[in-house]
Write a protein that binds this DNA or RNA. Structure first.
Lengths: 203, 203
DNA sequence: TGAACCATGTAAGGAGTTACATGATTTC
DNA sequence: GAAATCATGTAACTCCTTACATGGTTCA
């Protein structure tokens, strides 16, 4: 039940059309709550039906027919309620850790390449966050909103930092591990997928 | 598409009944891929229909009528395939960060208590992980499987460490911020919606 | 013999993803 | 005037969650 609140937040920050929201959910709020345009349009419809937002009359000579929405008092109240309400943290769910656990049983063959790719992606994301920090939060700036936004950004930075470090360490340890199926315990029929390329101890 | 593979991994580690799996998904694999018993039973049915697992004949005088499952070669092959296949990391999705972003607009009133609670929960989880590390990974132990399992555990430890540190810092900064909507220095709201999207690149 | 629990399952619905549809506008 | 793209939307499907159902077992 967070998507409507993500949208309310975004619309309070700036009234927008569906497409503008979609664009903004590729950055900014989307960094920690992503959404596709289909989700957004559907949710805009619901929020309007509930009286939480309304379409703005097209003041500019609307080219295309984009509808912009703004938040109504009821919507703001709902967002306040939700923000203050207690919510349990969701348990971690990470496919990469699961794959490593699986690899402990069936072997690490074929894993290294994708770990390397993930490392690159996380490094890139980390760089992007740091760039934003340099640009938007220079030393002098610290209004109350800035402080909160900076805090959120630092969560992103620290998380990406964790992943890059952890992945780098995983890659260091990986080449020493058996690559094929039957990596530890089990009887293995030896017929299964062999993969030559992985014997390179790259590093 | 990760639940079936989580189950295959668990069953390879040890053949189990639905209920045993459910129990094991409260710990161990469940630490990074949780599942309810409904999900598990449904998925066991599918996996059996696909020929990836099969029910073991009840060798013990089955009290109750628990069915235990074991993985068939086809299931193991599928798990190998999945483990080696490239997968994109899922974008971060965190309701707490979203709430902070919302709080930057509607005020932080009511947030502190829940942040404190989250901090406690994360500290407890961190302690649990450290306890497991002490118990299961003493200095001497490092077979190939141990190394992988330890690596996974360290990911959990480092993530919880991050959250505890980040939450502690958030709580330090929070009291200085305006608590209610307009309930503080309302300078931020006069020009409000124009600058909400601070982390959004120029536009 | 009734209460509590064990073990497996069904049903309904919410939330997210993927693929496709439609009309308007810009561009070549 | 055809092609590309903009902007909004529908439809179908998967995955997960919540609530409930059913029959067996233990034990007081």
């Amino acid at each position: 039940m967070s998507l409507p609140h993500a949208i309310l937040t975004a619309l309070l920050e700036r009234p927008s059309s569906g497409l503008e929201l979609t664009r903004r959910f590729d950055k900014s709020i989307g960094y920690f709550w992503s959404a596709t345009h289909q989700q957004i349009y559907r949710e805009l419809g619901k929020l309007e039906a509930e009286g939480h937002i309304r379409a703005l009359p097209p003041e500019q000579p609307a080219r295309g027919q984009r509808k912009s929405y703004e938040v109504l008092p009821a919507g703001r109240a709902e967002l306040e309620r939700w923000t203050a309400a207690a919510q349990d943290p969701k348990p971690l769910r990470d496919a990469l850790l699961l794959r490593l656990r699986a690899a402990a049983v069936v072997g690490t063959a074929g894993l290294e390449g994708d770990l390397r790719r993930h490392l690159q992606l996380h490094r890139r994301q980390l760089e992007e966050y740091r760039e934003i920090e340099r640009r938007d939060f220079p030393p002098g700036k610290d209004g109350p909103q800035d402080r909160l936004h900076h805090l959120i950004l630092r969560a992103g930075i620290d998380l990406e930092t964790f992943w890059t470090q952890w992945l780098a360490q995983a890659l260091e340890e990986l080449p020493d591990l058996p690559g094929g199926p039957g990596g530890g315990t089990d009887v293995t029929d030896g017929t299964a997928s062999s993969d030559g390329a992985r014997t390179t101890p790259s590093r």
